[in-house]
């Protein structure tokens, strides 16, 4: 892939915490303006990858470029290109929803912070709760505010670490729409998720992280080819992503009882 069309380029990424060797050589590319979904079981290292790509954590080895800038040598430039919605809502509990948005807008030096805040509050169904302290919000409201905060300043690349965990079906669909709109307007979206239907629905490319490496990646159609068409003789049916996921990760788990 050429640099100009590549939003993220990750090569040989390795990371250990104390004794756990979490990432053992991760490689992938994400094209500009696309939606990329990273799948993996709990503890696979998805959040670790997100933290490395958002300059919060240094890899032990390997390289990663984000928006054309190296995370190791040009972290400030990387931060100008990105925005992060972490796995757990990172909002200020004591401020109101509106104040949270205005704070981020000021830190991003955008004009008309108040108006931007009001627009986002409306878009995310938080207009009524705008003046209430976030400590009184439900989990789903916090999550929506969290995502809204990440949209301020129109970053080129948005990282969403399990953005719909804890949302009700309506909230999930709302977030899916937001993600789709972001991609339509040219933003690159890097998404991790536990919901395989979410990846199936949204992602242009999907990668599965398992035991420290990306074991498969490609479009949903590519991944489907990895499995023989379902054995069903009576009904023709494509394997769902969930089946592919379980087949690939499940078999690995059973025959290599490698302690991580």
């Amino acid at each position: 892939m050429e640099a100009s069309t590549t939003a993220l380029q990750v090569r040989g990424l390795e990371k250990s915490y104390d004794k756990v060797h979490v990432l053992r050589g991760v490689d992938f590319d994400v094209a500009r303006g696309s939606i990329f979904a990273l799948l993996g079981s709990n503890g696979a290292g998805k959040t670790t990858i997100v933290r490395i790509l958002t300059t919060l954590l240094k890899p032990d080895s390997g390289t990663a470029s984000v928006g054309g800038f190296d995370v190791g040598s040009q972290p400030a430039r990387v931060r100008e290109s990105i925005s992060l919605t972490g796995q757990f809502a990172a909002v200020d509990e004591i401020l109101t929803g509106r104040e949270n948005l205005i704070m981020i807008a000021r830190l991003r030096h955008v004009k008309h912070a108040g108006q931007i805040a009001d627009d986002l509050l409306g878009r995310f169904g938080l207009a009524e709760a705008a003046g209430r302290r976030v400590s009184t919000y439900s989990g789903g409201m916090r999550r929506r505010l969290d995502i809204a905060m990440s949209l301020i300043g129109s970053p080129q690349i948005i990282f969403l670490d399990e953005p719909t965990t804890g949302l009700d079906p309506e909230g999930r669909i709302e977030v899916w729409k937001v993600i789709q709109n972001l991609a339509d307007s040219g933003t690159t979206v890097f998404l991790t998720t536990q919901y395989l239907d979410e990846a199936e629905k949204l992602a242009d490319r999907i990668a599965i992280l398992h035991q420290g490496t990306i074991i498969v990646s490609g479009t949903l159609a590519n991944l489907r080819k990895l499995l023989p068409p379902a054995k069903a003789e009576y009904v023709e049916r494509q394997p769902t992503l969930e089946e592919i996921f379980l087949a690939i990760t499940g078999s690995d788990n059973s025959d290599t009882k490698e302690p991580r």
Binding site: T55, R79, S83, L84, G86, A90, V91, D92, L107
Partner: peptide
Amino acid sequence: SGIFERFHSMPI
């Protein structure tokens, strides 16, 4: 709360 990390991922 994670807001520290959010700030650190921003261009500030």
